[in-house]
């Protein structure tokens, strides 16, 4: 847009603000729920994937880094209103690292590889990001909670599969709808 501050090297102020806004959206996602049975599905991880798919690898990862940081300094933005360094070192900490590496970076990197990513490509990118989130989450869980891998998977992956599948579909749908709107 011919803006003097955005033409220089490195991240632009716009990029910063977009990242921060998606970090805020990720926090807000915890308040959007689909009521199903006992444990409603929250839309938090939907925004994790959207940040990568819509903003790309660098800004997507940055937005999730900021989101995790806000939670780590103790503000209640994680699932269920938890916060603090304890969450990062605690049993679910690996998922948070996964948000940055998987949902933000990997999903973003894959979507970026195509100039005009199709529905299937976006879906696969989100799934790849999700798998990385699961891997990091389970590894971390099995280490800090001192659980063998199979049990870590039983506790840390299986209960979330259905919800995550639904969110993958939503993320793909929303990404293909809104992708053209963001010019970074």
């Amino acid at each position: 847009m011919g803006n003097p501050n955005t033409s220089g090297s490195g991240m632009s102020v716009r990029g910063m603000v977009f990242s921060a806004m998606f970090a805020a959206l990720t926090a807000v996602g915890a308040f959007i729920m689909i009521p199903i049975g006992l444990a409603p599905i929250t839309m938090q991880t939907l925004f994790v994937h959207l940040s990568g798919a819509l903003l790309g690898s660098r800004l997507g990862a940055l937005s999730q880094f900021i989101y995790v940081l806000v939670g780590v300094i103790g503000l209640p933005v994680f699932h269920g209103g938890a916060g603090g360094l304890g969450v990062l070192l605690g049993p679910t900490g690996g998922y948070l690292i996964g948000f940055i590496a998987g949902g933000g970076y990997l999903t973003g990197r894959l979507v970026e590889m195509r100039k005009k990513p199709g529905f299937l490509w976006i879906a696969m990118s989100c799934v790849a990001g999700l798998i990385l989130i699961y891997i990091l989450g389970v590894l971390h869980l099995s280490v800090v909670a001192d659980l063998p891998m199979t049990r870590a998977i039983a506790v840390g992956v299986v209960p979330f599969l259905i919800g995550d599948a639904i969110k993958m579909i939503a993320a793909t749908f929303i990404t293909s709808k809104l992708r053209g709107m963001i010019k970074l």
């Binding site: 102020v13 603000v17 806004m21 805020a24 959007i32 959207l50």
Partner: peptide
Amino acid sequence: LLARMKRVSSLVIPLIRNSILRAEEVA
């Protein structure tokens, strides 16, 4: 489930769309 998911999308899409416009103005 599908109907509920659709309705959630109808919440999320305007929210993101507004946030993008917001981010432009904030920057």
